[in-house]
Design a protein around this nucleic acid. Sequence first.
DNA 1: GTTGCTGGTTGCACCATATGCAACGCTGAT
DNA 2: ATCAGCGTTGCATATGGTGCAACCAGCAAC
Lengths: 255, 255
Amino acid sequence: MSQSLDRALTLVTSLAREPKTLDQLAQEVGVHKSTVLRLLRTLESHHFVHREGPRHYRLGSALFDLANKALEQRDVRRGAEPALAALNERTGHTVHLASFEDGEAVYIDKFEGRHPVRMYSRVGKRAPLHCTAVGKVLVSALPTARREELARSIAYPRLTANTIGDAESYLGELGRVADRGYAVDDAEHEDFIHCIAAPVRGAGGEVLAAASLSVPRVLLDIDGLLALVPDLLAAAEEASIQCGWSKKEQGGISR
Amino acid sequence: MSQSLDRALTLVTSLAREPKTLDQLAQEVGVHKSTVLRLLRTLESHHFVHREGPRHYRLGSALFDLANKALEQRDVRRGAEPALAALNERTGHTVHLASFEDGEAVYIDKFEGRHPVRMYSRVGKRAPLHCTAVGKVLVSALPTARREELARSIAYPRLTANTIGDAESYLGELGRVADRGYAVDDAEHEDFIHCIAAPVRGAGGEVLAAASLSVPRVLLDIDGLLALVPDLLAAAEEASIQCGWSKKEQGGISR
DNA sequence: GTTGCTGGTTGCACCATATGCAACGCTGAT
DNA sequence: ATCAGCGTTGCATATGGTGCAACCAGCAAC
């Protein structure tokens, strides 16, 4: 809708991959380099990009600042933090917190596991809905209509042998998730990793986010992983309580 | 230089403070709301802002993503991380890593202290140069000319009773910092906190960043703090080594 | 039911503003 | 000395961003 802004944002996202030179950028976006220069200058004046010497444009510090401010705003994150940190401490495995945004799951917090073999991820990263435990939890919490619509609208790229491949099986899986109160990703996203996830609820019982444990299969087989479910559920419940949820009014909302 | 982009960035930074409504934003930036709408839409299409229902525009997830990607790019951060985490673990105090950018110090990493009384800060936050330990370390590492120019160009807002108030005293202090290899902020920035900082060096001996310990005065008096200097220096040295620095070629570069 | 309010949305006409071009300057390599 | 790569500047053009005014939708008050 706004050309220059659009281009500028494309520039920034492109810079995120790696520092680049001016003409590189110009070529990439398909505009004249003088145009890129002007955009970069405005971006620079707001500290969105930073240039050190020729041939080096990098992302600037405003990004860190904004991102962290934004994360601080998310009360789920603050509320859930202690419980998740404790879970991470107790199990030694990677813990994620993800929320639903624009038809995708977005990681909003992460606690790195202690084991040498670790999952790659990053706060802010988007995760597919059909093959992650957090995705399943988040979608299963949506009102039925929305859930079905979504299930039919998303693509089902097959990422591993176990990946769910169509809307029907996905909807079935979502039903199971809603019933038991947690979701499993049995190496459906990455071959080496499996996860379990549970919902974090707010005052009205609505699902604010999903908390998950991700562990490499070499460390724990699927039964070992499932043995951690009670631990995860306890942490998610503790997090929920911190977010204003109270145990009594369970049941009513989801499905 | 680019009006629309400039406005858009202002919008984003304004949204960072708190979620706002359309006309609020329009008024704040002094533009017609239809204009704001268009800008927001483009921002939204890039996930820079996110709208949930009417009356609610929030920062979007692209910010988190970019910010963390950017932080990952900074090799200082990665290199220094283990040493700083260990320092934090050992002392229980807040540890910061800051780098010099555009005439300011910017926090690029932080390890939260364990004590209930803590310093407020945030990754991405900018810190003044004249009254912080990290600022002193970073400036004292600049070439003499640049250092003097900078010292004369910055303002010296008096934030506490101890704040350095003019360029002369500042330059004197910088000399001392360069000599001993670490800097002290004796409650010059905030009344309740004092800090010590040391440089983290790269392969050529150049200063990449400054590492600091911040501790509330109620926990430790100045002598107690200074007793931690060797610990800090060891951590900074360890971090430097991880960043490619080797002990031998000391001396030459700074001053 | 009607009115008024607030917040968001659309189409249009105008001209400010972003754009591409071409030429210049700088730096470092051959 | 020459060249190549990169960044920078001034200028003319028309594209694209802007403001306006009218409209729609939800909501509260009366």
